[in-house]
Design a binder for these strands. Structure first.
Length: 294
DNA sequence: AACTCGGGGCC
DNA sequence: GGCCCAGAGTT
C-alpha cells in the first residue's frame, strides 16, 4: 500500500531539503565519494567536511595518494578518530591504482575486496558513485526502518534482515533507488534522530508505525555498552598518535611513552601496551629507539 | 557473536 | 557521565 507513496514523499523531501554536501555534488568523482565514505564511518558530517576538502585537494586520485607514504595519510587524517581508517584508505588507494587501473570499481564484490570496505561502504559507493541499485543501510537507515516499518523506538542489533527490509522499500528504477537510499540516511541524520526526533518535520510521518502506535518505548536489544573513554587504551593511543602527527621527525621512544602518560594512566604498563598495539596495527614504526609514522 | 578501535558533541 | 555517531576487521 504505502511503498510507492513513502518513496515519493521521502524523495521529494530530499530533493527539497537535503544538505548541500560536496561529495553529493554533480561532478563528484567515485574516488571523492569513496573518500567521504571512509571518513564518515562512525564520524559526523560536520567534522568530516574540512578534512575531506583538504584531502581531495591534495590527493585527487587514488594513485596520487598511493604515491605517498602511508604516514602522510595518517597525518592528514588529523583528529577524525580511528586512524586505522587512514591506513586502510591508503591501502585501498594502492589496490585501486595497481589492480583497477586507478579507477574505483563499481561492482559491490570488487569493492568488498578492497581494504577497509565492508558491506555498508561497498554498497554506498556502488549506489552513490555509479548509480547501481542496491539497498544501502547505515545506522540512520536502520533506525528509520525500525520506526517507520516495525513500530519500534530504536533499531536492534545489525542483521542481514536490514538489507531485506530496505530492499522491500526500494523503488524500482536505479535513479530513484539511489535517491531513496540517500534520503533514508538523511532523514535519520536530521529528522528521525536517535534522541529527539522531529516528527513534526517528517515527510513520512503519516506512514510511521511507531508514531501510529503512540511512540511506545519498546526499544529492543541495545548494542553493548561502550567502555568509558577516559583512562582507556584508546585515549592513550590517541595521545601517541597526536604527538607523532605533530612532530615532523621521528621521536625518541622515551618522549612517546611520556606523552602517552600525560594526563594520567590507569596503570604504569599502559603507555607501553598502547605503543605496542599501535606498532601491531602498523600505525607506528619503531627503529633503534626512534618512533615515527609508517 | 563479541571485542576493539577515536574523538567530539549533546543532554 | 552516558549515549550516539554514513562501520570494519579480528578472534
Amino acid at each position: 500500500m504505502g511503498k510507492t507513496e513513502i518513496a515519493s514523499a521521502l524523495n521529494s523531501w530530499y530533493e527539497r531539503e537535503a544538505r548541500d554536501l560536496p561529495w553529493r555534488a554533480e561532478g563528484a568523482s567515485p574516488w571523492a565519494i569513496l573518500v567521504s565514505e571512509f571518513m564518515l564511518q562512525q564520524t559526523q558530517v560536520e567534522r568530516v567536511l574540512p578534512r575531506w576538502v583538504a584531502w581531495m585537494e591534495r590527493w585527487p586520485t587514488p594513485s596520487a595518494l598511493a604515491a605517498e607514504e602511508p604516514g602522510e595519510a595518517v597525518r592528514a587524517w588529523d583528529r577524525l578518530g580511528y586512524p586505522r581508517r587512514a591506513l586502510w584508505l591508503h591501502r585501498a588507494a594502492t589496490e585501486i591504482a595497481t589492480l583497477h587501473g586507478d579507477a574505483v570499481p563499481a561492482d559491490v564484490d570488487r569493492l568488498l575486496a578492497l581494504t577497509g570496505i565492508g558491506p555498508y561502504t561497498a554498497r554506498a559507493v556502488s549506489v552513490f558513485a555509479f548509480g547501481e541499485r542496491h539497498p544501502v543501510v547505515d545506522t540512520n537507515t536502520r533506525r528509520v526502518i525500525a520506526r517507520l516499518v516495525h513500530g519500534r523506538a530504536a533499531a536492534g542489533m545489525p542483521s542481514p534482515r536490514d538489507l531485506a527490509d530496505m530492499e522491500a522499500l526500494l523503488p524500482e528504477s536505479d535513479a530513484e533507488a539511489a535517491v531513496f537510499n540517500a534520503a533514508a540516511m538523511e532523514l535519520g541524520a536530521v529528522v528521525c534522530t536517535a534522541r529527539s526526533p522531529r516528527c513534526d518535520d517528517c515527510p513520512v510521518a503519516a506512514w510511521c508505525e511507531w508514531r501510529g502506535a503512540g511512540y511506545p518505548d519498546n526499544a529492543p536489544a541495545k548494542r553493548p555498552k561502550q567502555a568509558r573513554f577516559e583512562g582507556s587504551d584508546r585515549q592513550v593511543r590517541g595521545r601517541i598518535m597526536a604527538l607523532l602527527r605533530r612532530r615532523p621527525d621521528p621521536a625518541p621512544l622515551a618522549d612517546v611513552l611520556a606523552a602517552a602518560a600525560e594526563g594520567g594512566v590507569r596503570d604504569p604498563g599502559q603507555p607501553r601496551r598502547a605503543h605496542d598495539s599501535l606498532v601491531a596495527d602498523g600505525l607506528v614504526v619503531e627503529l633503534d629507539g626512534l618512533v615515527r609514522l609508517p
